[in-house]
Design a protein around this nucleic acid. Structure first.
Lengths: 252, 252
DNA sequence: ATTCAGATGTGACGTAAATCACAAGAAAAA
DNA sequence: TTTTTCTTGTGATTTACGTCACATCTGAAT
């Protein structure tokens, strides 16, 4: 259930961004359209780091405080219970960033971050990140908005964990991952479908339970899996299943 | 299990703080030692609101965005599941504030806030709060730090919910609530002990389970209840119980 | 093709903990 | 005081779902 470090750490760190890195940073959502002064701070302090699939980018309790910007690839933020069970917090695609918590409050890392696939990352030291926040109030506001968004989704997650059944949490997770079908309009799918173990970590349940949910959905023609994509056939039925209040009796 | 609105809403709102309110605001942790310009913004825009025990101060999905500062009293932040189960997020004592999420991102309230006891609150409109953040970078930084703290504790909570047993979550909650005994040194207690139903909402379990945990702790001489206070006799044993990894088998 | 590791599907079983039900204390109201 | 309402303690019963076990499928490597 725990992920193994299949590869040796082959990440490389370069000092100062290449021209490739510079243009990627200038296009980065958080920095897009920023004034020259801001970009100057970024270019002067940013470093690049490459890392390969499944590599651990940073780990819980570490004292470092760099902020990471995902230029290419995708990372997963996870934690492990005492018994080794994996709990996933988020999957961050290119254009996102992580590690800002430690940069802001100086406390150790609260989670582990793993590369889902080969990644290109830019890093800023805590000092540089703080300088950035201080020089550009626009970016500071965006960062604050992002923190608020994180809180809201964490609160949602807590509510889900506290009140939904394991089956429902899987339904909810599937609904969260759905994207509009690029080909057929008004149709939803998940591609690439994560492994059942990864879905289980997001829904805080077991791989077997995810398997059972998926079979049941398939049997009821609500969702169908074809190799690496899951087609959602009956969105409304799935939403109904996710929302159905447990026959808990009185809804007072 | 759900709290009733026993009292009619008897809250009063005053326009502009009285001298009593002014001094309370000047002493408020977030504003303490702030420059005159900042206090000026606060005094000009703050209103006072009183509300009585068990009153609902604001509710989920509302579109308002005022920020509330607890000058006196205590409030609970909660949510309800579809089936009516209460999930508590936090208890905010005097000196704390809430409602900043909606003020920052303009989205609706994500939870309900109830007065635990009679309260005196100061409020700022979203516009005033934003002006405050813009004029005083020191306060902006403090607010950001608080957001980070909220995220960290929410993440902890998610980890607890996903990996601990119901009993363990109650142990953890008890440990969180403990305060040093004001009389005897090196001794810990909880006063006033919330009702079992409230503890259950924090630990996301049932009242009965909390009762069973408390009996067991009493039986093992780990914690003893005497009317409204819980004395923790054997802190280390309690911590051990909270941390014990389930006989989950292999810790890989 | 053949092999092999990882991912998936599904039954059987055990158990933590929710649910139900009620008695007995405590505190508040009369 | 007595009465009423809110809280607490504890048994009996039920069930969701985690655990174990193994068969089958899939896709990458040889």
């Amino acid at each position: 259930m725990t992920s193994e470090n299949a590869h040796p750490p082959v990440s490389t760190t370069e000092s100062g961004p290449s021209s490739e890195g510079r243009s990627a940073l200038a296009e980065f959502p958080l920095f897009k359209g920023a004034p020259a002064a801001t970009l100057d701070v970024i270019f002067r302090h940013a470093n690049l780091r490459r890392c390969s699939a499944d590599e651990e980018i940073l780990s819980r309790d570490e004292q470092a405080g760099d902020v990471y910007f995902v230029l290419r690839g995708e990372v997963r933020i996870v934690n492990y219970s005492a018994s080794g069970r994996e709990v996933a917090y988020a999957i961050i695609p290119a254009g996102g960033y992580f590690g800002e918590l430690s940069a802001i409050d100086g406390r150790p890392r609260s989670a582990n971050v793993l590369a889902v696939e080969d990644c290109l990352l830019a890093t800023l030291t805590p000092a540089a990140f703080k300088e950035l926040l201080a020089t550009d109030t626009d970016i500071a506001a965006k960062v604050m908005q992002k923190l608020v968004r994180i809180i809201r989704s964490a609160d949602d997650r807590i509510l889900d964990l506290a009140t939904l059944s394991a089956y429902q949490r899987v339904y909810v997770e599937i609904l969260r991952m759905k994207k509009p079908d690029p080909v057929r309009p008004n149709s939803w799918l998940i591609y690439p479908l994560p492994t059942q173990a990864q879905i289980a970590a997001l829904a805080s349940t077991t791989r077997e339970t995810v398997a059972r949910v998926l079979s049941q959905l398939n049997h009821d023609h609500i969702a169908e899996r074809k190799s690496k994509t899951l087609y959602i056939r009956e969105l409304s039925k799935l939403q109904a299943l996710a929302a159905k209040s447990q026959p808990d009796g009185k809804m007072n």
